[in-house]
């Protein structure tokens, strides 16, 4: 493929729409969904356009749509508007306390300007296997709410959302409205670990863990890893193994081995397959240890 080296200007031409309500966004999609891309923070899409990896005829800027911005708690569920910035999410009231792994994944997110510009919906819709927020959202049983221009709404659990690198189940006539996170139980602890070359880099491997500690055992646990398969993924074998067990040196080692067996990483410019396989286990081990410690604080409450 022709690889352009110009990144100063954008050569391809397109129209930009700037709707100010969700209804108007859907109306725009109804007109002509083909060749249209939704533009949020632009930190990924505009790079792709500059490099001519995608050539949309039209962009719909969704950063002026109040229905897609901000956070609310409804029936104990945290609802995050899809165009909410990563920085806003990280600083959201109660997010760090209740959804620690998610706040940590936001802290690890690229650079400060990218955290300010980039959005949670953009991070998910771009569907990078290394998307920083995805493992944490998996761990909290997150789901995304999609609206289509025909007026239908559907909620897709995050672990069914990704299909492959850059691909999701979202249709061209749909827009992501919000990310929904269920209430966390008493005794919950969580942690996120990112392995990268330097802090601002895309991860080589990432891992998020959420567990509920009851009577000094793991009563429930979610483990998700990023950048080790075609999509972010749950490590089901390790999750099942840990249920009902205590976290100690042996169970940590066994869980790490189970993760190593489940992941299917590739070798690329950032890492080798072998490195990713081993480090996925290490990252999960570290996240489990931190989550277990944090859960003890929660158990006392």
């Amino acid at each position: 493929m022709y690889q352009t080296t110009n990144t100063r200007i954008i050569v391809p031409e397109f129209d930009v729409r700037q709707p100010t309500s969700l209804e108007a966004v859907l109306r725009e999609l109804e007109h002509n969904a083909k060749g249209t891309r939704l533009l949020a923070g632009g930190t990924d899409l505009l790079v792709q356009i500059k490099l001519e990896r995608t050539q949309p005829a039209r962009l719909i800027d969704i950063t002026r749509v109040p229905e897609l911005m901000g956070m609310a708690v409804k029936d104990g569920m945290l609802i995050v508007g899809a165009a909410t910035s990563i920085r806003t999410l990280a600083n959201g009231v109660g997010v760090r306390e209740r959804y620690t792994a998610l706040a940590e994944s936001c802290d690890a997110f690229s650079t400060v300007p990218v955290m300010i510009m980039g959005t949670i919906g953009g991070n998910l819709c771009n569907a990078s296997p290394a998307a920083d927020t995805a493992p944490a959202l998996f761990a909290f049983d997150g789901a995304v709410e999609l609206a289509s221009c025909e007026g239908s709404r559907r909620t897709v659990p995050l672990d069914e959302f990704f299909v492959g690198p850059g691909r999701t189940v979202m249709r061209e006539d749909e827009v992501m409205v919000a990310v929904r996170l269920p209430k966390t139980a008493a005794g919950t602890g969580s942690a996120f670990v990112k392995i990268g070359r330097v802090a601002a880099d895309i991860s080589k491997v990432s891992a998020a863990v959420k567990l509920v500690r009851k009577d000094d055992r793991v009563s429930e646990c979610r483990i998700a890893v990023g950048a080790v398969a075609a999509t972010p993924m749950r490590a089901y074998t390790a999750e099942q193994y840990l249920a009902g067990r205590r976290i100690d040196a042996k169970t940590l080692a066994d869980a790490a081995r189970a993760v190593e067996e489940d992941v299917k990483p590739i070798t690329d410019v950032r890492s080798t397959k072998e490195y990713r396989t081993h480090v996925a286990g290490v990252a999960v081990k570290d996240a489990l240890g931190a989550a277990w410690q944090r859960a003890r604080g929660g158990e006392r409450q």
């Binding site: 700037q18 533009l39 632009g42 800027d61 990218v114 300010i116």
Partner: peptide
């Protein structure tokens, strides 16, 4: 807010 002007469409700062 610190913003990367190389990844910001001019129309979006209206």
């Amino acid at each position: 807010a610190p913003t990367l002007s190389c990844l910001k469409l001019a129309v979006s700062v209206d």
